[in-house]
């Protein structure tokens, strides 16, 4: 299995070269945010205020980690279901976010916004959270500490394994992958 390596922040060219189905290792900074943080970010945008993080070129990881044990950088940290972020995602892509990491299907509005703004949706392996935590080398809360597991964290990752699901060209691995391996009744 071939693997591409990319570093954050992502450039226009990085994004355009990624195709649905690519296995990718991400190195650099990613920002964690899930439901509650997304809601707060979009509320700020609605009020015309600045975000606590400059999202240009950045990757957002939908994760609410387990608490760190003594000596750990972070507790287990796998992805949560992305669909719950769909309502907020186009607004954050308009702010320049270039990559999203989660698990599960996105709606059509998100897929269209990925094409429009030139961005990519990756999935990491849901439930492989102890393994993923090992690729996170540093983590600090940068906004909304009161949200606990849902706070926005600036995480430094090294070779964080993800797979491209929706690329900037309109391809969807969830649709194409299942089609490729589907067996219709009556087939061997």
């Amino acid at each position: 299995m071939s693997v591409k390596r990319i570093s954050t922040p992502l450039s226009e060219q990085d994004v355009m070269e990624l195709k649905a189905g690519d296995n990718v290792l991400i190195t650099g900074v990613v920002y964690s945010a899930r439901d509650a943080a997304h809601k707060k970010l979009v509320e700020l945008l609605d009020k015309g205020e600045d975000l606590p993080v400059d999202l240009r070129g950045q990757v957002i990881y939908y994760v609410g980690p387990a608490p760190a044990k003594p000596g750990q950088v972070i507790g287990s940290a796998g992805p949560t279901t992305s669909g719950r972020m769909d309502a907020y995602t186009p607004a954050l892509l308009a702010q320049g976010a270039k990559g999203l990491v989660g698990k599960g299907s996105r709606n059509q509005e998100v897929k269209d916004a990925l094409k429009e703004h030139g961005a990519v949706y990756f999935a990491s392996v849901g439930g492989a959270a102890a393994l993923t935590a090992k690729t996170i080398k540093a983590s600090e809360v940068v906004a909304y500490e009161e949200l606990g597991a849902e706070a926005i964290r600036r995480m430094t990752v090294e070779d964080f394994p993800v797979t491209v699901v929706n690329d900037a060209h309109g391809n969807d691995l969830y649709v194409e992958g299942a089609k490729k391996y589907e067996r219709v009744a009556g087939e061997g």
Binding site: G21, A123, T163, E176, G177, A178, Y181, E182, R183
Partner: peptide, 12 residues
């Protein structure tokens, strides 16, 4: 036989 596969990436 749906072909969804591990993590939905396509597979057996």
């Amino acid at each position: 036989d749906l072909g969804i596969g591990p993590q939905g990436f396509g597979g057996r």
